[in-house]
């Protein structure tokens, strides 16, 4: 089973993943990089949760879990009720600009189909976003020194490691203000 892996310690908030996703998906990005406190970037894409609230919330079964473990919205079935948007724990499903259709990361299904990795994975300048076999990814994540493994939502979820930032980058700056 292949999963996404976000190594938050390496994110530089360059937003290449957003621009790449936007390019692959007709002008709308389905990955979001949020900057907390001006210094802590958090890239968020669909976690493809094993316990998937969006799938359960959808009244018309427009959201499906594929054999590869990807959670995919069939947009032609969407009735734009917005329940999946509320149900999603991570805020990665949004209705399109007209408020009509819900959409989210599909792990670049069209790329995986012809053997190419998702666009955000390939473009990421710092290898913050990776994609691979679950066990291998977990081994990689566990091997990172000084990082906390914050999420592995079953075997189909996304693996995330994050840095311990007790003081934060600003406090690390040794001086300057006086």
């Amino acid at each position: 089973m292949n999963v996404l892996y976000l190594d938050l310690n390496r994110c530089i908030y360059c937003r290449a993943c957003e621009v790449a996703c936007e390019r692959e998906h007709g002008g709308v990005s389905r990955i979001f990089v949020t900057l907390l406190d001006w210094t802590e970037p958090v890239p968020v894409a669909c976690r493809h949760c094993e316990k998937h609230p969006c799938v359960e919330a959808c009244p018309v079964d427009a959201i499906e879990v594929t054999d590869e473990g990807a959670v995919i919205i069939h947009t032609n079935k969407c009735i734009s009720c917005g329940l999946c948007v509320i149900a999603c724990p991570f805020g990665v499903i949004e209705l399109d600009k007209a408020g009509k259709i819900a959409d989210k990361c599909d792990l670049c299904a069209h790329r995986l189909a012809d053997g190419r990795q998702p666009a955000c994975v390939l473009t990421c300048p710092t290898r913050c976003i990776q994609y691979g076999e679950f066990e291998e990814i977990m081994a990689r994540a566990r091997a990172k020194p000084g990082l906390t493994l914050v999420s592995a939502v079953g075997e189909t979820g996304t693996v995330v490691t994050m840095p311990d930032r007790p003081a934060g980058a600003v406090q690390k700056a040794t001086s300057g203000s006086d």
Partner: peptide
């Protein structure tokens, strides 16, 4: 379940806490 009263953007900001809450036991 802590996120039902948050908008999408604020859920993204809180995504790490949410992930921790939902974390599968190692």
């Amino acid at each position: 379940i802590s996120w039902l009263q948050l908008c999408a953007e604020c859920k993204r900001k809180r995504s790490l806490e949410t992930a921790r809450d939902l974390q599968a036991p190692e």
